[in-house]
């Protein structure tokens, strides 16, 4: 009896920590994207907006599932991450020129295949987004594994 509860409590511990890390990563990404658009005034293209729609709710959803800890959040947050991940992947391929973009370049806004920031020679904003969604997704997946085991 005591052994089982011990296993349970460590599982609980690790699950909580993973969701906490996922929240932390999503919050950094949210703050970062707001910094790019609001402080540096980098224009936000259409695809970036769709990724924001998937990323921003994670900050609240994951935070609320920490107090009290509710592992069922993986379902909701996982769906958001999946959507964001595919859009980020699409944009990364667009930037890389693997998927061609329609001819609608400088109309009103900004072509999504244009990048504004390059860190360390390869990290542009869509790549950062894809990495972030992958990381949050992995953390949520690990949480799910712990909870179902």
């Amino acid at each position: 009896m005591t052994v089982i509860s011990k296993v349970d409590s460590t599982g609980f511990q690790r699950g909580w920590t993973l969701v906490f890390l996922a929240w932390f990563v999503a919050t950094i990404a949210t703050a970062g994207s707001l910094f790019f658009s609001e402080v540096m005034q980098i224009p936000v293209c259409e695809l970036c907006w769709y990724q924001r729609i998937a990323m921003y709710p994670l900050v609240l959803v994951l935070a609320l599932s920490l107090f009290p800890y509710d592992p069922r959040v993986v379902r909701v947050a996982g769906a958001l991450v999946a959507v964001g991940w595919f859009i980020a992947l699409f944009q990364v391929l667009l930037v890389a020129g693997i998927i061609p973009e329609d001819m609608r370049p400088c109309v009103q806004g900004i072509p999504c295949s244009e990048t504004h920031i390059t860190l360390l020679g390869f990290l542009n904003i869509p790549t950062l987004s894809l990495l972030t969604f992958s990381l949050v997704g992995t953390l949520l997946f690990l949480t799910h594994r712990i909870e179902t085991s």
């Binding site: 909580w16 906490f20 929240w23 932390f24 919050t27 935070a63 920490l66 107090f67």
Partner: peptide, 9 residues
């Protein structure tokens, strides 16, 4: 946990 969360914010 609350301390950790608030520190994170």
């Amino acid at each position: 946990r609350k301390f950790l969360f608030i520190t994170g914010i």
